[in-house]
Computed example of a mutant assay.
Amino acid sequence: MQDVIGVLVVDDHAVVRRGLAAYLESAAGIEVIGEASDGQDALAQLARLASQENLPKVVLMDVLMPRMDGLTAIGAIVAKYPDVRVVVLTSFGETERVHAALQAGAAGYLLKDADPDEVAAAIRAAARGEVHLDPAVAGRLTRQLVSPPMGLTALTPRERTILTLVGRGLSNRQIATELSISERTARTHVSHVLTKLQLSSRTQAALFAIREGLIDSPG
């Protein structure tokens, strides 16, 4: 039984957790030894398993969760349990999120539309000390490295919308209301826009939006 890979499944949706656990239990050489509903719960479960000397080899974790998100949890897990590997399984494949996860210490990044066998393969790769990326994610990262996007091409459709709203003079709160998102999410989007365009202020972003024809120049 030494070759069996213990896995902790972390996702805030119980149906997703149970489905993943059920599949992984049927995968050769993999055993689900616990489930958690978010990053904070994951750390509590790991502490419990550590006290039983039964730490998982791999944590399969979502990114967006309440209380403590996956990115924060990855950093905490890697710092406290360096022998535990974390594989991200999420619906979000933006390169910024992938970079953040890998920088935090993730050993893999998969999208939730991945084939179940690929999830098992990523877990096995992580247990071997390898990094496994979803093919679509790997393709985006490769394209970005080969030809880094510049100007508007660096922005996602949502970020273009954010830039247009900033150009119209809307505050983060007003942008959040306009797009039915949280103010924190709006603030994060604005920060990403400024970073990608190498701008230092909302005023510069507004001028950029006018220059690119996203909004009309006042007067």
Rank of each mutant, 00 (worst) to 15 (best):
R48I: 01
R17S: 11
Q52S: 04
G167R: 13
A100Y: 08
Y109C: 05
S37D: 06
A21F: 01
A154P: 04
E53K: 08
R128N: 13
E25Q: 14
D12Y: 03
E159D: 08
M65K: 13
G219Q: 09
A125N: 09
L165V: 07
P157L: 00
A186H: 13
G39V: 09
Q144K: 11
T203H: 14
K57D: 14
D11K: 07
L170P: 14
G151M: 09
G213M: 02
P56R: 01
I74N: 01
A28Q: 14
D62M: 04
M150Y: 03
A136G: 06
D38I: 10
P66L: 00
R168K: 15
V84P: 10
L194E: 08
T153Q: 14
Q174A: 08
I210M: 13
L55D: 12
Y81R: 05
R18G: 02
S217I: 00
S217Q: 11
P149G: 00
S200Q: 15
T142H: 04
G151T: 08
Q45C: 11
V98K: 02
G105E: 00
T156F: 02
A136T: 11
D134E: 06
G75D: 10
A186K: 14
T203R: 15
T188N: 14
A79H: 12
M68C: 02
V131N: 01
A107G: 01
Q174P: 11
P157G: 04
E31D: 12
T164C: 03
